[in-house]
């Protein structure tokens, strides 16, 4: 019995070692960022993680009034805003503020019309070339998947603990840290002309985007503090939602599936014990 338990423990230990190896490839080495991202206690962290709908609504407001000046959101449609608790009319009104090109009509001509809920989010630029040209050669990336496309190396042994704490907020933590991380460069820092020093930036010590958020920049109507810090949090959560709108559904489903499999495994354990009771092995 003791030996078989030891063996089971050995199997488990080997499996963990292999998973640890797995964690490595996701976190390759690099000199940047200078500072590790700050960890935020997001509502969507952990096994019972869920969206804070109020926060997502505020995040949408920050995106619309600040980020959308340069960043597109190509994978999102206006209809997706239903998830944030908006009604059909509210969504139609929101969409109607943007113009999309449609056609050809019966005369064979292209025309513009107000956007509808089924349309994708209209971006600030007609195409990538215009975006690059308007921003001095730096392309403001599409934000749909940004919260999944950025992950700072967690380092040993943190990435092992991450398995057990279910840490998966690399993206939003990074975005929040970057947005609140602008500061004066230290004297020995070598910052290129036109770039802005930020020790949280993943690919260098400075980036082309200047600090976009300031206190009282966006008006909130739900009483949340109108600070740059709060804006950064809200828009990071919003971008986690755009990167994976089904995140809370996934976690709810996962809880049921894992629980079922564990109970099933328990039942099989007792069945196996009974079947093997008369066999020495």
């Amino acid at each position: 019995m003791i030996i078989s338990r030891l063996k089971t423990a050995l199997v488990a230990a080997t499996a963990v070692a292999v998973l640890v190896l797995g964690g490595l490839s996701a976190h390759a080495a690099s000199g940047y960022p200078i500072n590790k991202p700050k960890n935020v206690d997001w509502s969507f962290n952990g096994p019972f993680g869920h969206w804070d709908v109020g926060q997502l609504q505020r995040g949408l407001k920050v995106y619309t009034e600040v980020c959308a000046a340069c960043h597109s959101l190509n994978l999102m449609s206006y209809r997706n805003l239903e998830d944030l608790g908006y009604t059909g009319t509210q969504i139609s009104n929101y969409a109607a503020e943007y113009e999309v090109e449609d056609g050809p009509n019966d005369d064979g001509e292209m025309f513009t019309r107000p956007a509808e809920p089924t349309d994708r989010f209209v971006g600030p630029y007609a195409n990538k070339q215009e975006a690059i040209s308007a921003n001095g050669g730096a392309y403001p990336p599409d934000m749909s998947l940004l919260a999944k496309a950025r992950a700072v190396e967690r380092g040993f042994p943190t990435f092992i603990f991450d398995i057990f704490t279910m840490y998966a907020a690399n993206g939003p933590d990074y975005i929040y840290s970057l947005l609140t991380g602008y500061q004066d460069p230290p004297e020995d820092a070598d910052v290129l002309d036109g770039l802005h020093y930020n020790p949280y930036f993943i690919a260098g010590n400075a980036l082309a985007m200047s600090n976009p958020l300031f206190d009282e920049l966006v008006t909130y109507d739900d009483g949340a503090p109108e600070t740059a810090d709060q804006y950064a949090k809200d828009v990071s959560a919003f971008l986690m939602w755009t990167a994976e709108p089904n995140l809370d559904e996934r976690k709810k489903r996962g809880f049921v599936v894992v629980l079922f499999l564990l109970v099933f495994a328990g039942l099989l354990y007792f069945t196996k014990k009974k079947v093997w009771a008369d066999v020495s092995h």
Binding site: A26, L145, A151, I163, A168, G171, R250, K251, L261
Partner: peptide
């Protein structure tokens, strides 16, 4: 299932979302 539902990106690489 623990990984599929709670850590689906743990074993992958963030750059593949670009």
């Amino acid at each position: 299932a623990y990984f599929v539902f709670f850590l689906p990106d743990y074993l992958g690489h963030a750059d593949n979302y670009i």
